[in-house]
Design a protein around this nucleic acid. Structure first.
Lengths: 213, 213
DNA sequence: GTCTATATTAGGATAGAC
DNA sequence: GTCTATCCTAATATAGAC
């Protein structure tokens, strides 16, 4: 059956596209069936309801984001690669932005997702803490009691709500500039903890700004 | 007609209570009519639809939060009163938490609210910037280029999403501890900019912690 | 202003043929 | 697996009497 795409997967792909572009609440199960040219009854055979499609998409997201978040823990990053990692996290979130833009509403309708999502958030925080601890150990960053943990938490929160915040503050901004600004804003939160050895920080930041063109 | 509460106001009050406690999406127009013992038809006479009730509540919130946010700009705070101000802002948000907990969904349904809400967010940011600039001018805080503005923005974002974030991370926390933690977390973001004259900061923080008991 | 009673609509669910 | 056709439900909207 090589080359034959399963209907179930076509449904998932179509739903993700519609949700991301039109907004999840604007898209009904019937709309999804229409764009791939199947009947609502058939869609209901594969997924009995929009909720199950969302759950399937979320499972996919969970697998991917866990991989992304585990990578730098398993294999340490070079200092200058830290900001690239932030990009990768943001891009993963961007791919499932329908969820991040509508989180509270989706979680209210599908309570089963709350716990796994909360765990992803916690993992994000732990990953950031690991990265910060490494930079601290190498003498790049200097934290007082409790500051590192507080910063990890804020960064996790920053990544979680950045897209929502941007929809409010800059509704017309391009995807690229939203992500750029999000990474920049994250880096700016780390700035004040950079030690006197600020040489390496300046290099990192200028490389980052160059890359943005 | 002193002492006679208008039906329109009773509707607003009942809706706010239900929205805050049950969640806006769980509450239908009929539910609101039921709790104050009027018919759905009558409710529809006063507000044709849940959307208009939400708009009325939002207008009320806007008036109140603008007052709160303008107060310390018009009449400067004593240094040690800054954290009290943060409490007041949080409590105002708490009073209309149905909106903050469901923002994206409500704004999608009632697009007219997006612009005013965005302006409130901008005002919040400007107020924080004013407060920070004052603390900087008095020598309490030290910022490098661009850091103060970045911090103001982050604080505005922090206040906007704290309730949502807490619903995720600590779904069972008490209102009091949510607000305490939110204020604490906001103060922790200012910590790293506190100058060598950290005496005043220590005093402020310990007073804050004492007050939490 | 307030009521009762009756639409309307949109989303989601089901039955049964092919 | 896929279709057509029908049904159910909840939320909101309207009509007209009191």
């Amino acid at each position: 059956m090589a080359g034959k795409v399963k209907t179930k997967d076509r449904i998932k792909a179509a739903a993700l596209g519609l949700f991301n572009n039109e907004g999840e609440r604007e898209v009904s199960a019937v709309d999804i069936a229409n764009v791939i040219g199947i009947s609502p009854g058939n869609l209901h055979y594969h997924y009995s309801g929009k909720g199950l499609i969302i759950e399937a998409l979320f499972a996919e997201f969970e697998t991917e984001i866990r991989q992304v978040l585990s990578a730098p823990v398993n294999k340490p990053l070079a200092v200058e690669d830290n900001w690239i990692f932030l990009y990768i996290v943001f891009e993963e979130i961007w791919d499932f932005r329908f969820f991040y833009g509508n989180m509270s509403s989706i979680l209210a309708r599908i309570p089963d997702l709350a716990a796994p999502f909360s765990r992803i958030l916690a993992l994000k925080q732990r990953t950031f803490d690991t990265l910060l601890a490494r930079l601290e150990g190498d003498g790049h960053l200097v934290f007082r009691e409790g500051e590192r943990e507080a910063l990890s938490e804020r960064l996790a929160m920053h990544f979680t709500y950045w897209l929502q915040y941007n929809a409010l503050r800059a509704p017309t901004a391009s995807p690229k500039s939203i992500i750029n600004h999000g990474v920049y804003s994250a880096l700016m939160q780390v700035t004040p903890y950079w030690g006197d050895n600020a040489q390496s920080y300046a290099a990192l930041l200028s490389e980052f700004l160059d890359a943005q063109g």
